[in-house]
């Protein structure tokens, strides 16, 4: 960035805690722990998601995932992936608190197994209960500004709207809603789900998001470490551009070279 300091990207602060990067990495979809390790390092992330599953299903890597993440010094953000009711999601969050010793949770309450979009009614109910139980709740939500406000109102520490369905790589389908959502809440907004490539992450930040959470775009890329590095730059670039104040869009051209002094040839 030449003479311009990286520090201008600023900090992501959630629930009063400074998170060292605006890029949050999901660990799902990585081909191996070694590939995940490279991606975590290249992304520069400071917080990663983990899931909770039966030990026999996780048998291929007993303890290995936690060891790796501890070595990299990243904060854990347990998720409630696969839950379809508030009751289930609240129980999984409490189990994750037991397992990982953190009261932070990426709250997912899925409403439909084809789109994996959230069930708004169950989501707000689960968020309400978990906040009352002392959790720092980061809900995966839609790009609906009104729902985001409801989630903030019950005490969520951030809101995490989907740009498009999980794993679809379709990017941000309704950028205007993300802008509206940004204005609707005072808590951090983290674009979560749908990112396909670096320009999607940059756009999220240009729209005013405070961070980006992505998994598949990196872990399922042909070269996960390279895409992780691309995402790190994209998030920083988008944040700087957001703060820099872009030029207004014009219908016609506006010459950047003055007419004055043009030779008569």
């Amino acid at each position: 960035m030449g003479g311009y300091p990286d520090s201008a990207v600023g900090d992501l602060v959630i629930a009063g805690e400074k998170i060292g990067s605006r890029l949050i990495l999901g660990t799902g979809g990585a081909a191996s722990l070694a590939a995940l390790d490279e991606a975590v390092t290249a992304s520069g992330t400071a917080m990663v998601t983990v899931a909770l599953r039966r030990v026999d299903a996780a048998a291929g890597q007993p303890g290995g995932l936690l060891d790796l993440l501890e070595r990299r010094g990243v904060k854990l953000l347990p998720n409630t992936a696969g839950c379809y009711t508030a009751r289930e999601a609240v129980t999984v969050a409490r189990l994750a608190r037991e397992a990982f010793g953190t009261s932070w949770v990426k709250l997912e309450v899925i409403g439909d197994d084809r789109t994996l979009l959230p069930d708004a009614v169950e989501l707000v109910a689960a968020a309400d209960e978990l906040v009352a139980d002392g959790f720092t709740v980061l809900p995966y939500t839609t790009d609906d500004p009104v729902l985001a406000r409801r989630l903030a109102d019950v005490g969520c520490a951030a809101v995490m709207p989907a740009g498009s369905p999980i794993g679809s790589g379709l990017g941000i389908n309704n950028p205007h809603h993300v802008r509206l959502l940004r204005q609707a809440v005072d808590v951090p907004v983290i674009l979560d789900a749908g990112i396909g490539t670096a320009s999607d992450a940059a756009l999220a930040m240009e729209l005013g998001c405070d961070g980006v959470l992505l998994a598949s775009a990196v872990t399922r890329a042909q070269d996960p470490a390279a895409m992780a590095a691309a995402m790190r730059h994209a998030v920083a670039a988008g944040r700087l551009a957001y703060g820099a104040g872009r030029i207004p869009r014009r219908f016609h051209a506006l010459a950047s070279t003055p007419d004055e002094g043009r030779p008569d040839l």
């Binding site: 660990t27 899931a51 030990v55 996780a58 995932l65 998720n79």
Partner: peptide, 10 residues
Amino acid sequence: VEVLSAAQGG
């Protein structure tokens, strides 16, 4: 009885 531990997940 459900015995659960960390797994990769986004």
